[in-house]
Simulated assay, not measured.
Amino acid sequence: MTETLHPMLDGGLKPADPAFAGGTLVCACTDRPVKIVIKGQVLHNHACGCTKCWKPEGAIFSVVGVVPHEAVTVLENGDKLKVVDPNAVILRHACTGCGVHMYGPVERDHAFKGLAFIHAERLLEAGANPPGFAAFVSSVIEGGVDPSRMDGIRSQLKSIGLEPYDALNPALMDVLATFAARKSGALPA
């Protein structure tokens, strides 16, 4: 059975444009849409199965990447943005009209501090880095996916070139572990 993973994944991954220098994220509102400009390429773009990220209607995964927080500028209708969970590490700013998560900075003491998570499918411009892996794949079960579908979902992810992980990919897990080791003194700061 072919699953509806996400609109950016289901038709195959589109390559990045080496000239991509950023673009405009737009929410789904037809009246006063929120517009946010990002500068630079989207990094660590991935399919995410967690239950916190915004997903398009019918999608099992979100597609989320990061940019430096200073590369994010709210251009229009920022008054419609509200933080979904002020206690979360990622302060997901969602449009109060349509519910789309527009950006999520990490502001507290964390390995990802200074980054903002974005949903590249909301970019008007093409050419952002495509997803490179799938994270928190098992978490889709928490969102209501029957566990019997998981082998097929993992196979489908692999068939489009996305390695499925039940956490982040090894490189990002190393960043988190290094941050923790430096904070604890196990590694020099």
Rank of each mutant, 00 (worst) to 15 (best):
81 L>A: 03
7 P>M: 04
84 V>R: 15
134 A>K: 06
150 M>A: 03
96 T>L: 07
111 A>F: 12
188 P>D: 11
189 A>Q: 12
26 V>R: 09
34 V>T: 03
86 P>F: 10
88 A>K: 00
74 V>P: 13
100 V>S: 03
187 L>F: 08
62 S>G: 14
95 C>R: 04
19 A>V: 13
26 V>Y: 05
119 H>M: 07
12 G>K: 14
94 A>K: 08
102 M>R: 03
155 S>P: 06
38 I>F: 06
22 G>W: 04
107 E>N: 10
126 A>M: 10
108 R>P: 02
89 V>W: 00
177 A>G: 11
87 N>W: 04
56 P>V: 03
99 G>V: 09
50 C>H: 03
42 V>S: 00
43 L>F: 12
86 P>T: 11
156 Q>M: 13
173 M>F: 09
12 G>S: 10
46 H>M: 11
7 P>A: 14
186 A>Y: 11
187 L>P: 07
41 Q>W: 06
83 V>W: 05
177 A>F: 13
65 G>R: 05
143 G>E: 01
47 A>P: 02
108 R>I: 07
171 A>R: 15
113 K>Q: 13
62 S>A: 15
142 E>M: 11
38 I>K: 08
113 K>N: 12
78 G>F: 13
57 E>I: 03
133 F>M: 09
88 A>H: 07
170 P>R: 11
23 G>V: 10
56 P>I: 01
134 A>W: 03
154 R>T: 09
38 I>V: 14
146 D>A: 15
58 G>L: 10
109 D>E: 14
32 R>S: 10
73 T>P: 00
60 I>K: 02
59 A>L: 08
120 A>N: 04
71 A>R: 00
151 D>W: 14
37 V>M: 05
94 A>R: 08
32 R>P: 00
84 V>G: 01
161 G>D: 15
25 L>C: 02
140 V>E: 01
12 G>I: 10
1 M>L: 14
49 G>K: 02
47 A>M: 05
129 N>A: 15
37 V>P: 02
106 V>S: 01
27 C>D: 03
86 P>G: 08
71 A>Q: 02
61 F>N: 00
142 E>G: 13
154 R>W: 13
111 A>Y: 11
90 I>L: 05
34 V>R: 04
174 D>T: 15
156 Q>L: 12
33 P>T: 13
20 F>A: 04
68 P>T: 09
55 K>L: 09
100 V>W: 04
110 H>A: 06
123 L>K: 02
126 A>T: 11
184 S>T: 11
